[in-house]
Design a protein around this nucleic acid. Sequence first.
RNA 1: GCGCCCGUAGCUCAGUCGGAUAGAGCAUCGGAUUCCUAAUCCGGGGGCCACAGGUUCGAAUCCUGUCGGGCGCACCA
Length: 581
Amino acid sequence: MSDMHTLYAAFAAKIAAALAALEKEAQLPAGISHAAVSVEPPRDPSHGDLATNAAMVLAKQAATNPRALAEKIVEKLSADPAIESADIAGPGFINLRLADESWREELRAIAALGADYGRSTLGTGRTVNIEYVSANPTGPMHMGHCRGAVVGDALAALLEFAGHDVVREYYVNDAGAQVDVLAESVYLRYSEALGVAIGEIPPGLYPGEYLKPIGQALAGEYGDKYLEAPASEWRGLFRKRAVAEMMALIRADLALLGIHHDVFSSEAELQAAGKPDQAEAWLRQHDLVYDGVLEAPKGKTLEDWEPVELPLFRSTRFGDDQDRPIRKSDGSWTYFGADLAYHMQKAGAADELIDIWGADHAGTVKRIKAAVAALSQGQGKPIPFDVKLVQMVQLLRGGEPVKMSKRSGNFVTIADMVEEVGKDVVRFTMLTRKPEAQMDFDFAKVVEASKDNPVFYVQYAHARIRSTLRKAEAEGLAPSPANVERLGPDELALVKLAAQFPRTVEAAAQAREPHRIAFFLYDLAAAFHAYWNMGNDDSGKRIILAHDPELTGARLFLGQQIGQVIRNGLALLGVEAVEEL
RNA sequence: GCGCCCGUAGCUCAGUCGGAUAGAGCAUCGGAUUCCUAAUCCGGGGGCCACAGGUUCGAAUCCUGUCGGGCGCACCA
């Protein structure tokens, strides 16, 4: 389905046609760029329904002044019956007022497209791989993972709705030192299950209770077979088993948030397949990796620092502070060394890559972007690659910071959080802020069902609509498009707002900012609540009017479509559109 | 010391590839409920868009610098 079905796109096309006609008549020079021409609703509704800056941005190239050019454009547009008026305002804006029928047509379009209203062809034919969460498989998901998980998931849904093929991917870091520590921690629980007194968990190991069941399961399966055995005999087995169990735990936590990935990629498998070796060989051939010694860090003094020769990637060529090691001194891969190979693997099956990272990894963005650029260009398939950084969330309860201690394994888990405030509140709250700004998450505020909480506000608007439709049905009244011409200005104003949904989807997808959907829904809900309350002051403005089934049908139809748009938007955010509150 | 992110109303935040008189919620003050869900609505007050320069027809938005907050800064991930 073409995005030309939406009203804003259709009028952008009309303006383009007017400009083309002027070119043909040599009123405009041919071949000038129209890229800066925009068609948007003016901030002030009294200016009209649509405004374009075409005359202002083209005047210089056309060697004329904006108002003179605007007059010519207006002349062309005025011929269109869908355009009721076209006026020139301010420095050269062209304000258009559309015929009411245009808005009624859009209302019918919402009904016809239903759940597909707002879907775009923007990304058709492009596969985007979006990697998010990728938490280490060493324990349950905690709050530190939550925002990135929600933002990544909403972005994936948004890009999909905008026409892209989307691959939701999770990188399982099952090859580093941390999973050996995990294996040891599980071994301790295994011993414990066999009756060994383990006492305090030694520092450096994972102390969480969640490892106990794995130790017990292993004790049940293997008895005391590994109790006296050297680590070399059990480490691999325990590691593999522990990672599998942790990933099951993590998937369950993600499911609580409504998040499901398409692909889980294992770092260990990547290394076993020799991908990092291949990348290193190529980089060395092209003098992008060399053996060298790093300088001591500047900002702080490290007592145990000593110079070591390592294979270094020349990230300084790409604006990084220093070159970065791809292997450790024992020959094993650094995270970065494996990660660059991993990104090439992803690039093989996608046209674009997006990573969602926590802000604490900001320092590593330059090196990975540099490596991906170098490798993908060198291999003849340069790939757009975007790293979105998600800022920290400060957890509060009634204004006081929630204390967390990593050492004791005492942290706020996602499971706790979803249980306490609910999936919808967690998701919506995380999406009502732009990701690159820090945010506070206050348990006390967020569960207040009315005050500070936009989730309920939007859901309430939807619930009101559904409730009205139920009540009307009980009275034998049904929504109908038959008499939409009886809808008045207050009602068409709602349509005008809802009609911005498709362009909001496209703008949000292009900017990769799912939070714009959340704010749009808030505005639409507010407009509906205001409309609703008109019926409190003037009973003639209520939706259900027993004496006038035709007008009632038209208003119910309007409400039905507003509800549809709210549902479509909430679906992108992964928030439920409730029937009642 | 260096890098990245942020700085908009008392508080929490929006602000469309630069566009017309900078918006919303909370808080505060004043109103609306015999009536489709008042978990809602209507109205008032509240701003040197951190500061200083620059770019241009036009800057909260782009550039430079300063100040303030956060995050990070050897073979951790």
